[in-house]
């Protein structure tokens, strides 16, 4: 494990995690919320963060890692400044999401699961986004883009420098 002396969790973050587990009978129940909090600050969850969370939540680091690797929206590897998540589920498939995905892969020069060399975008496939009447759909960071057409994609990407 890393031996860095600089702490990943700030006092403010620890206080926020303590606030989270107040709602539950045991501290470990706040594990997923705490992982998301770390990710909100750093965009991903490092080994060091897992170690520090283990102390705060009174769990073993392995236990936390078991949880972190189960959930697809906890990133255990660094991601780009912007994460594109394109829905590959059935309604978006019927409505032609593959054209959207192929265009993005070609334009960005990366495959699913990869990050552009300049660290700007990570491209991921994602399960149904619950907006099937406006398929195809994708998230970029916190923004939902729907009724996608290939012609719009250049303009949409420009909004994420």
């Amino acid at each position: 494990m890393e031996t860095s002396t600089s702490r990943v969790l700030t006092q403010e973050m620890i206080a926020e995690i303590q606030e989270m587990y107040k709602h539950f009978p045991v501290k470990s129940a706040a594990c997923i919320e705490a992982l998301k909090l770390v990710q909100k600050h750093y965009r991903w969850v490092s080994d060091q963060a897992v170690q520090e969370l283990a102390e705060v939540l009174e769990m073993s680091a392995d236990e936390i890692d078991g949880v972190a690797t189960f959930y697809n929206l906890i990133f255990r590897k660094p991601v780009g400044r912007h994460v594109i998540m394109i829905c590959d589920s059935v309604s978006c498939w019927v409505m032609g999401y593959e054209k959207i995905a192929d265009y993005l892969k070609k334009k960005l020069g990366i495959q699913f699961g990869e990050t552009t060399p300049d660290g700007r975008f990570t491209l991921l496939p994602i399960c149904c986004l619950g907006t099937c009447d406006r398929a195809p759909a994708m998230f970029i960071d916190e923004d939902l883009h729907r009724d996608l057409k290939v012609e719009q994609l250049d303009e949409i990407l420009e909004r994420y420098p």
Partner: peptide, 27 residues
């Protein structure tokens, strides 16, 4: 009453898996 926001995975909709997720475990 409070809210928990999931971190993904379809299986969380299954009620006993959901309970495990809410307990902070693998679903």
């Amino acid at each position: 009453l409070s809210v928990h926001i999931s971190a993904g995975r379809y299986i969380c909709g299954e009620e006993t898996a959901l309970i495990n997720a809410l307990e902070g475990k693998r679903a």
